[in-house]
Structure formats: structure tokens, C-alpha cells
């Protein structure tokens, strides 16, 4: 018989395990180039936002990441544009992904930081490796702050994703993958 406290710990562990498995599944879809299946994990009302990271003076960290309200970001879009990206990759004539790059998503440091009804807030870190043609390599390291929504079909849908890429000048010529 578990104590009330142990029951709470177990529930949290199970939830984290479920979220981790969801993230590994998502990463596998991207790495296996199953983009249509990946876009099916995206909620219709998603806000997918990767701000630009500024170099700012101490004390001005509030404006380190560009705002979705009135500034320029690397990505700041909804499902319509994300789905357009998937359709473009799937043409086979999107030259910067033809032939496909070898991309691997490593997702770590998963934390469930809030539960609100059928939505949870989860943070994680990513390390994305891209190897293209012979020797082109791009590394993308950063953090994600998600809102995930329970879904009967897919388990979860991604309802909001803030992606903090740890770069200022983007060191890759393009970003063709998803985070």
C-alpha cells in the first residue's frame, strides 16, 4: 500500500515518463523523415516560436530574446506555415533538403513544470546534429518550453513551443529541421 506521498511521486514519475516517451517518439518521426506524422502531433492553434537571442547588457535580460509581439524571430508561426514546410520538403525538389540531410534529435533534461487540466507545461533541452552531403555539419543546441495538450488520437498534441537556440548570429546557412 503506497502512502499518499508515494502515490504523488509515482504519478509525477509516470507523467514524466509519458512525456519523455512522447518526445522520443516525436524525435524519431523527425529523424526518420516522417514529417506528415510529425505535423499530426501539432495542435491547430500552435504558436511555434524561435526568437533571436540578443547580446544585451547586464540587467537587460528581459529583452534578450526577441518578442513575438513586434520583433523578428527565426521562427514565429502557426500550423499553416509549418504544414507548408512539410509539403515543401516532401516535394523532393527542395534543394536544401534534397538529398535529405542526416539529422538526429537528442532530447534531454525533460521536466514537467506545470499541470492545468488536460494541458501540461514541459521543458526540455535539445542537441540536434545535421550532417549534409559529405561533410557539412550544423549543430543546434538549446531549450524548449512547451505546452502539451492531451489528445485521444496521438496521446499529446503540441499546443505551444518556445525554442531557445543558443546562438546569436546563426551559424548555419539555413534551418531545415524542426525542433
Amino acid at each position: 500500500m503506497l502512502t499518499e506521498n508515494e502515490q504523488g511521486v509515482l504519478e509525477r514519475l509516470l507523467l514524466r515518463e509519458e512525456i519523455e516517451q512522447f518526445y522520443y517518439h516525436e524525435a524519431a518521426l523527425l529523424d526518420d523523415r516522417k514529417f506528415d506524422d510529425w505535423i499530426n502531433l501539432i495542435a491547430d492553434d500552435i504558436h511555434y516560436h524561435m526568437p533571436i537571442r540578443r547580446n544585451v547588457k547586464f540587467g537587460e535580460q528581459a529583452r534578450e530574446n526577441t518578442s513575438s509581439l513586434n520583433e523578428i524571430s527565426w521562427f514565429d508561426e502557426g500550423k499553416r506555415t509549418l504544414a507548408g514546410r512539410v509539403r515543401q520538403i516532401n516535394t523532393g525538389i527542395h534543394w536544401c533538403e534534397e538529398p535529405f540531410s542526416r539529422i538526429r534529435h537528442l532530447i534531454t533534461n525533460v521536466r514537467v513544470v506545470g499541470v492545468d487540466g488536460d494541458e501540461i507545461r514541459a521543458n526540455s533541452n535539445f542537441f540536434v546534429w545535421q550532417n549534409r552531403l559529405q561533410d557539412e555539419v550544423n549543430l543546434f543546441v538549446g531549450a524548449r518550453e512547451d505546452i502539451l495538450r492531451r489528445d485521444e488520437e496521438t496521446g499529446w498534441k503540441i499546443a505551444k513551443r518556445l525554442i531557445l537556440l543558443d546562438q546569436n548570429v546563426l551559424l548555419a546557412k539555413v534551418i531545415t529541421t524542426f525542433f
Partner: peptide, 14 residues
């Protein structure tokens, strides 16, 4: 402009 051009824009990546 963000979805059109730049390193994450759909047009100019190619």
C-alpha cells in the same frame, strides 16, 4: 517576411 526569407524562410533556403 519571416516565412518568406532569411535562413528560416521557405523561399531563400534553396
Amino acid at each position: 517576411m519571416m516565412r518568406y526569407g532569411g535562413p528560416c524562410g521557405l523561399t531563400e533556403s534553396d
